[in-house]
Amino acid sequence: MSPNMVSADLVTTIVASGGESGFETPGTGNFWWPLIGGDSNFAFTRPALAVLLSVALIAWFFVGATGKLSIVPTKRQFLVEGTYNFVRNTLGRDIIGSKDFLQFLPLLFTLFTLILVNNVFGIIPFVQYPTFSRLGFPLVLTVIVYLTYHAVGIRRKHGIVKYLGSLIPPGLPGWLKPIMFFLEFLTYFVIRPLTLALRLMGNMLAGHLMLLVFILGGEYLLLHGGNIGLKGAGVLSMGFAVGMTFFELLIEFLQAFIFTLLAALYISEAVSEHH
């Protein structure tokens, strides 16, 4: 019997054991959770609630930890100081430079902590929703980063005309300058903002979908599997979901780090005299 025939028989068995509908695979619909307003464009959704909760949680945690500082830090103070020093030294000073990084440190610290907490929400029980899998949220952060980036660039170049002129590398022949200006303008004003937002959204969306497939698929096989083989596959799927959860935690940290790192890199270009 060919592998295709075996796969077809397995699918038939799974569908038949679940009735007429069979197993419904997770999709983008699993990311739309309206709490108030239903299908309206102005609905108050679960990710909106998660963002508000994350802001309250971050404010409570950091304000509470810094309100009573001690020479021998508590675990909470140690975590706050470690996070701050990581963003300050690794993402601020080392990328932007010791001369200019302090003025951008609040932005970088806010970006990192906000993205990290909302990403981790994707594996927290009773929340289990990565907020930044909804494009609107990373897009807003990207707009903030790029408004900062271009505002700094325009200020450093003493006007928008000189700033736009700096997009053209010196020494190019005249016929090549319009082409280079168009490509650089496209890169700095369109491609970079889109890729910054889409990278974060795509990774959170894909990771959460993968977890949903293993968890819901494993649950379905355990409850509706017609034989011991399918139920065993369900147990294996659920176990694999647990392992993937730890891997997803690493991805969630990396995506918060990469977004903030790229924001720092772009700002460092704006403050550089050579840009």
Rank of each mutant, 00 (worst) to 15 (best):
N89I: 08
S268E: 07
V80D: 00
N30R: 12
Q103M: 13
F44N: 03
L107W: 03
G82S: 08
L79S: 09
V80P: 00
F104H: 12
T66Q: 13
V235H: 09
F23K: 04
A233R: 02
S237A: 15
S21Y: 09
F182H: 01
K68W: 14
F44K: 06
H274G: 07
L212M: 12
G232S: 14
E81W: 12
Q77P: 04
L198R: 04
V11Q: 09
A241K: 05
I258S: 10
L262Q: 14
G207W: 02
S21K: 12
F181E: 00
G232Q: 15
E24Y: 07
G97N: 07
T13C: 06
L216T: 09
Y163F: 08
L102S: 14
T90G: 12
I160T: 09
F259L: 07
W32S: 13
V117T: 11
V235C: 06
T83K: 03
R199F: 13
P130I: 02
G38D: 09
F109S: 08
A197K: 00
P73T: 11
T131S: 13
F181G: 00
F126Q: 11
V213K: 10
I115E: 03
M5Y: 15
T45M: 07
S17P: 02
L265M: 13
A48I: 09
A65W: 00
G165H: 04
P178Q: 00
L222V: 11
F189R: 11
E81T: 11
L49I: 10
P106S: 11
A16D: 15
L209K: 06
Y266F: 13
V15N: 13
H275Y: 07
V271N: 03
M238R: 15
T83Q: 05
L265V: 12
F104W: 02
P178M: 01
P169M: 04
K99V: 14
Y266H: 07
T12G: 06
T245H: 04
G159V: 11
L57N: 01
P3T: 12
A263Y: 05
I123K: 08
A206W: 10
S272T: 09
P138Y: 05
P34N: 11
F121H: 05
A233W: 02
F257I: 03
T13Y: 04
P173W: 00
G165P: 04
H275K: 02
G19E: 06
P130H: 06
M201F: 08
T45P: 05
L262V: 15
F185A: 06
G232L: 14
I124W: 03
F253P: 09
Y220D: 04
P34K: 11
N227C: 10
T148S: 10
V55E: 01
T66V: 13
G67Y: 15
G37R: 01
S237D: 07
